[in-house]
């Protein structure tokens, strides 16, 4: 029992950063990212015996993405909920507080712009750029041809750059 749990944690915990990014940016419910990650691990643990794939990371991302997307569909059918806490900020790391605060502002800008991309483009960008999956793995995740996924990611990059440039221009006015 302990050996199984230890083996599971050793195989999966190195991917927690990737899962957190997917949980935070694949959907729109940022403040539940940590809950999605925890639930991903619980489900993965329950199915660890069935995991035979070559990539543990891709397997975990699949579980996390399904959770985020099904939660998004449920929420779309419900009246919008307003979180009691609006603290959506990124965790502060070990850097100097002032540097971290400035970096946090940039991160929030990019996160907001990413949130505005069309869903397919956002997912392709999140899975390829933030989760580090290959185009083939993302194609398998989204059930679309590899070239389509690459095209979505490219459009996502361009749209992201355009949104940030527009925001910069607005701030200078």
């Amino acid at each position: 029992m302990d050996e199984t749990r230890q083996a599971f944690l050793e195989a999966t915990l190195p991917h927690i950063d990737v899962l957190y990014r997917v949980a935070r940016h694949a959907g729109h419910d940022h403040h539940r990212a940590e809950d999605f990650v925890q639930e991903t691990y619980l489900r993965a643990y329950a199915n660890f015996a069935d995991h035979r794939g070559p990539s543990t990371r891709a397997w975990l991302v699949t579980i996390c993405l399904n959770l985020v997307r099904s939660d998004g569909r449920r929420r779309a059918r419900r009246v919008a909920e307003v979180p009691l806490s609006s603290d959506d900020s990124y965790p502060v790391g070990g850097r100097d507080v002032a540097d971290e605060a400035l970096a946090g502002v940039d991160r929030e800008r990019v996160a907001r712009a990413l949130d505005r991309l069309p869903e397919h483009h956002r997912l392709a960008v999140v899975l390829m750029d933030l989760a580090g999956l290959s185009a083939a793995e993302v194609a398998a995740q989204l059930g679309r041809p590899r070239n389509t996924v690459l095209s979505w990611a490219h459009r996502g990059h361009r749209e992201l750059a355009a949104l940030l440039a527009t925001e910069d221009a607005d701030r200078e006015l």
Binding site: D106, R107, V110, A113, L160, A161, L164
Partner: peptide, 15 residues
């Protein structure tokens, strides 16, 4: 495309 990819560096943060 390159600007967009570069901007995403901001979001590669640890859990």
């Amino acid at each position: 495309d390159r600007e967009g990819r570069q901007a995403l560096d901001e979001l590669r943060v640890p859990a």
